[in-house]
Computed example of a mutant assay.
Amino acid sequence: MLIEPNIRLSRILRNTWQVDIIMIISCIAAYLVRTVLIRHHFEIPSIIPTVLGTAIAFFVGFNNNQAYDRWWEARKIWGSLVNDSRSWARSIISYVSQGKADDLQYAIVKKRLVYRQIAFLYALKARLRDAVDETYSQYLEPHEKEEIKLQGNIANAILMQQSKALQQLEKEGMIDSFRFIEMNQLLVKLCDAMGMTERIKNTIYPTAYIYFTKAFIWLFVVSLTLVISAFAGVWSIFLGWLVGFVYVSTQINGMSLMNPFDNNSAAVPLNQITRTIEINLLEMLGETNIPEPVKPINNEYVL
């Protein structure tokens, strides 16, 4: 996620240089075609780029709105994961009674339940980013890691372990039925959040919108160059590229939000959010070995 109020020109050029080259070549070709072939026969009506420009504005605006909606929904879901994770740890620390367990066993039980929540978040983050990340394993016992090794969805398997552990607490009388129901509701909410993130990730943005927007921008740039070359001469190449650059930059900026869980500067900062929850939960347990918060990269963005 970008944290700078202004986007550096170098970043814009890095994201658009390939399209810029294509547009410049297209503008040169359009200028040469009009100069050599067309101008002696007919003039291109100026209404053509006018209509195309208006249509593209609607396309780009619609695409950007929909892409931002996906990004914002993803951010809200992870915001709920932050709250539910803290609520889970608070419930474990405050509501689980010692029962017949000795002090050491009691501390271990609470620690394991909170540690599994941290493991769940790291496993979910890795799944959403299609990354090989074994960070979650450091918060699981060896037998727990063996149990989930063959599972396709590790985050879901960890939630299953949490559910079994919660049932065992109720069976041993360490929580009453009312608290069992309330804490089980937290697990349900965590499962719901996991499902919503997977829905966003697995639902591909309609390809037709992206394809036609790119095609219309190219047609617009070519037709604009053809029209203004009658007045601006060779400068129509630069002007055609400049207007096209505005449309392309706006479209690429919106499309960078289309996949909010990608590991890039515009995506939801899963590393930062997960680390924040990890720090909060470890502090609630009274741990002393607390990791450092995720720091911005080049003071420009966080992942």
Rank of each mutant, 00 (worst) to 15 (best):
K145R: 14
D103V: 14
A267R: 09
Q251P: 08
T288W: 05
N64M: 09
I12L: 11
P269K: 09
D130V: 08
C27W: 03
Q162I: 09
G244N: 05
V188Y: 10
A74I: 08
R75M: 03
V132L: 15
S94L: 14
D20G: 09
A119V: 13
R116E: 13
T225H: 06
A215C: 05
Q162V: 10
M183L: 09
L104N: 12
A74C: 10
T288P: 02
E278A: 04
L124T: 01
G244L: 05
V246Q: 08
E4F: 08
A74R: 03
L190R: 06
A266T: 06
L140Q: 07
W17I: 15
I48L: 13
N259W: 02
L37H: 09
N259L: 12
L186Q: 15
S163R: 14
I279C: 03
N156S: 15
V33S: 10
L282N: 05
A208S: 11
F62C: 04
F62L: 07
Q168Y: 04
A74P: 09
D84P: 01
A67R: 05
V82R: 03
F220T: 06
I48K: 06
V33A: 12
I7T: 14
Q167K: 15
L270E: 03
G173C: 07
R179V: 13
S94Q: 06
P206I: 13
L128C: 11
